[in-house]
């Protein structure tokens, strides 16, 4: 449990508190928007944050847990500070997504099936169709999309770090 919790900065804590105050008593139907907003501040959702969300919304804790577990964009364990999602569904595969994934995995030194770098800077995910099939192969870094990517561009996209 101890390992699984965050160390949040005072600014992050204050920001989370502001969000939770706004969601006070809003009930279960506000759960997904609330999780989105909090995770945007904290990166992932630990038990203490989830307990605070449950208290604010008045939702049983297990119902928060099972929702995070269901949706792939919510995380209840640590992830990289930046997330790169590479599409490998049919149109992207036809445009060479395998080579893109290989380039990302090599560069980040993580498994081709996805993973987080040792320094916690990046998480690589092989993501289901991202809906940019006309720009295949396609990937997203956080909320930014990159179409028609080539393996040669990957080093630049992932920053200078080897």
């Amino acid at each position: 449990m101890k390992d699984a919790t965050h160390t949040l900065t005072p600014q992050q804590l204050a920001a989370v508190e502001t969000v939770l105050a706004r969601y006070q008593g809003k009930g279960r139907s506000a759960l997904l928007p609330c999780l989105h907003e909090v995770q945007a501040i904290t990166g992932w959702l630990d038990p203490e944050i989830c307990a605070a969300i449950g208290q604010s919304l008045r939702v049983p804790l297990v119902q928060i847990h099972e929702v995070i577990e269901f949706y792939t964009l919510f995380y209840n364990r640590p992830v990289g500070r930046r997330i790169i999602r590479v599409c490998d569904d049919v149109p992207c595969y036809l445009a060479g997504s395998e080579a893109i994934i290989r380039a990302c995995a090599t560069r980040l030194r993580v498994d081709e099936g996805g993973g987080t770098t040792e320094d916690g800077a990046w998480t690589l995910e092989i993501h289901p169709c991202l809906g940019r099939c006309e720009q295949a192969p396609f990937l997203m870094i956080d909320d930014e999309g990159y179409g028609h990517v080539t393996p040669e561009q990957i080093a630049d996209l992932l920053g200078g770090k080897p």
Binding site: M1, A4, P47, C50, P60, L61, V62, Q63, I64, H65, E66, E69, F70, N76
Partner: peptide
């Protein structure tokens, strides 16, 4: 409300909070 689910699909499991 002690019980819920982990994961989804084939990997679904009955679970508690965290």
């Amino acid at each position: 409300f002690a019980l819920g689910f982990n994961h989804r699909g084939f990997d679904t499991e009955i679970a508690t909070f965290f």
